[in-house]
Amino acid sequence: MPVYTVHAPSADGDIRGATDRFVFVRDGFSFWAFVFGPLWLLYQRLWLAFAGYMMLSIVVEVMLSLLRASGGIRFAVMAVIALLMGLEAVSLRRWTLSRRKWRQLGVVVADDREAAERRFFDRWTTMRGLDFDPTTVDRGAPPPTRNGPRQPPQLPRGDIVGLFPQPGMPR
C-alpha cells in the first residue's frame, strides 16, 4: 500500500483554517520525474532542484565529452541520472516544502490519494480537541531520563568486555 506524508503551510494563525491547502505527497518512485525530469521539476516549482539538475547534467556532459565517451555510454549515464531523479523526486519535493517552512503533520497509508485524505482527516478530527495546536506537537524528542546526576554504567571488577570471558584464558 502506498504511504503518503501530509504537509501543511506555515500559518501564523490557526492551521485548521488552511486544511484545503494541505499537500499529500506519495512516497515511492515517480515515473513522470523519471521520464520528464527537468519538466517535472519545473511543473512542481522545485527551482533549486531544477538548477542543481541542470548543473549536474551540464557537468556530466562536459566530462563525457572531455573523456570522448561514445553515444552508448552517454545514454547509459543519462539513464542512470534519470533513474536517480525518479527515485529521489519525492524527497526533493519534501525538502522543498520543508525549506518553504511547510510542516509535516503526519503519515497515512492508503490505496490512493482520496482514501489518504479521508483517513487522515477522519483521524485528525477525532483526535483533535478545540484547544489543540498542531504546531506544538513534538516529533522525535529523546525519551525522558531519570532526574539525578548522570553516572556511567558500572562494570564488575576484573571482567573483560569483549569476546574473551576471562583474562589470560587460552584462545
Rank of each mutant, 00 (worst) to 15 (best):
S65R: 11
A11N: 05
T19L: 13
P38I: 02
D112M: 00
L155I: 12
R68Q: 14
W102T: 05
P149S: 15
T126C: 12
D159T: 14
V25G: 04
F164E: 12
P153S: 08
D138W: 08
R93S: 03
T96G: 06
G37W: 09
L46K: 01
P167W: 10
R16S: 05
L105A: 01
R100A: 13
P165E: 06
L97P: 02
P149Y: 14
E117M: 11
A49P: 03
L46M: 10
D138G: 07
F34T: 06
R128P: 05
D131M: 12
F36N: 11
L41I: 01
M55N: 08
V137N: 03
M54C: 14
G72K: 04
L130I: 04
G162P: 00
A18S: 10
F36V: 11
L39F: 08
P143N: 06
R113I: 08
V59P: 04
P9C: 03
Y4W: 13
L66C: 07
R99A: 10
L87C: 12
R113T: 11
G28P: 04
V77F: 02
A18K: 11
D27M: 09
A8G: 06
L48H: 07
A76K: 06
G52A: 11
G86V: 03
N147W: 14
V25L: 11
T5E: 14
T135M: 12
R103G: 09
P2T: 06
F50N: 04
P144Y: 04
P156N: 07
W32I: 11
H7I: 05
A115N: 07
P152S: 10
R68I: 07
L67A: 15
G148S: 02
P170M: 08
D133V: 04
L46N: 01
V60Q: 05
P165S: 05
R123G: 15
Y53N: 01
R123I: 05
F132P: 02
L66K: 13
L39G: 01
G168H: 07
R146I: 10
R93T: 09
P156E: 12
D12N: 03
G13K: 02
V107H: 09
R119G: 05
D20E: 15
L163C: 05
D159K: 12
A69V: 00
Q154S: 14
F29P: 02
W124Q: 12
R118E: 10
V35Y: 02
K101N: 09
G37N: 13
D12T: 02
V80A: 13
M54L: 15
R68K: 13
E61V: 09
P144S: 04
Q104C: 13
M127G: 14
F36Q: 08
G13E: 01
D112E: 00
